[in-house]
Amino acid sequence: MTGTVEIRNVVKRFGKIEAVRDVSFNLPEGETVALVGHNGAGKTTLMKLMLGLIRPTGGHIMVLGDDPAAGEFAGRRRLGYLPENVSFNAALTGHETLAFYARLKREPAKSVAVLLERVGLTHAANRRVGTYSKGMRQRLGLAQALLGEPRVLLLDEPTTGLDPALRHSFYEIVEELRGRGATLLLSSHALTELEERAGRVIIMNRGIKVADGTLDELRRIARLPTRIRLKVTDAGLANVPNWLGPVDGWRQVNGHMVEIDAAPERKIEVLRRATDEGAPVEDLDVVPPTLDELYAHFLLSQETAR
């Protein structure tokens, strides 16, 4: 099995604006991929292209064996999509709405109640969607995306408007789906949230794919320093270079803390010295570069290259 989603040299222009420029990637089965980029970077456009809502100006897209640009949609029975601002007809109840979408996916009517239970909407199933709060609508949106055991899930900013508890249960459901081999594409601004979930990160900027790889790979490419924080005794503070060796970029924070930005190849060396027998270190923390920092780095390096 090759990728469930294949995108090759895709270009999308809206008039003069190039929303997506020559982007290619594959999404293999069972992978969770984070699509990262700020507003207007082309994330939503890419998802719409995969759904056939818009047609690419150039390039090819295959989703579950269909070419969405040609209007093929057989595979969409196994595809779930949660749009950025999900909306439903306000006149129908939650149950009626979900039942309608279930019929379109040829799902049995009993799956509706099960899904409503799963997203915690059973108590509001017979209320009109118009009376729902933003969080409840988002949950209903998630429920419809989960119809039919999807093999591919496209989630556009799925956690906006969810409170932390819901966010947690949301990611539990996502995790469960991944366990069953579904491909997940998540776009988000909340990078720290994605960091723990996504096996792979695709960074977009102004329609260009600027980086693509696992977090570790991206860290290696970016060569961002790892932050090492040491809690040092009073005596140690006085002569840091003596026991730490010649390290650039160390600084003292909060009295007893020493913070070092260690380049990848110096990291082990610094740690060795800090944990050496004679070193006046009481405690240490190692903070690898966060997705936020990686994101900023890749954006900056692309901007300067242009």
Binding site: L53, G71, Y81
Partner: peptide, 15 residues
């Protein structure tokens, strides 16, 4: 305009 068409067309149904 209400955004409901976006979701509907992501389903296995032709326009």
């Amino acid at each position: 305009e209400r955004g409901t068409m976006l979701l509907l067309l992501s389903y296995p149904v032709a326009r």
